[in-house]
C-alpha cells in the first residue's frame, strides 16, 4: 500500500515537473493571471469603490456575490458540524450555556 502510494506520488511529480515548464516565470508583470481584469481593479479600484485596500475592493464590491456564496458555504459547514456532532447524542439546548 505504501509502495502504491509512493508510485502514484512519483507519477504526480512527473506531471508537475512537465507542467511547470509552461508556467510564467515568478514575478512576471504581464503574466496571464495579471493581464485580464486585474489592471482594471488596480487602476480604477480606489476611484470607483473608495477602498484603499484593493483586496477588500475586489472581495466586497466587484465580487460581492462571490463573497455572499462563500459566507453561505461556511455557515452551512458550521451547521453541518453542529448536526453531525449533535445527532445521535442525547443533546438538547436545555442546560447549555447561553
Amino acid at each position: 500500500m505504501k509502495a502504491t502510494a509512493f508510485a502514484l506520488t512519483l507519477v504526480a511529480a512527473a506531471v508537475f515537473i512537465h507542467a511547470s515548464s509552461a508556467l510564467p516565470a515568478f514575478g512576471t508583470a504581464d503574466a496571464p493571471a495579471s493581464a485580464h481584469v486585474s489592471p482594471r481593479y488596480i487602476e480604477r479600484g480606489y476611484e470607483e469603490t473608495g477602498a484603499h485596500n484593493l483586496v477588500t475592493a475586489v472581495l466586497a464590491d466587484y465580487r460581492g456575490y462571490d463573497t455572499l456564496g462563500e459566507t453561505t458555504v461556511i455557515f452551512t459547514a458550521g451547521l453541518a458540524a453542529l448536526l453531525i456532532i449533535g445527532a445521535g447524542a442525547a443533546w438538547s439546548w436545555e442546560g447549555r450555556p447561553r
Binding site: T49, G50, D61, L82
Partner: peptide, 23 residues
C-alpha cells in the same frame, strides 16, 4: 460604496466569528 463595503465586512466578521465559536 464605502458604507456598503463596511456593512458587508461587519456581516462577514459576525458570521465567521459565530461559526468558529460554534464549531
Amino acid at each position: 460604496r464605502v458604507l456598503g463595503t463596511v456593512g458587508i465586512e461587519v456581516g462577514v466578521a459576525l458570521a465567521v466569528a459565530g461559526i468558529i465559536l460554534l464549531v
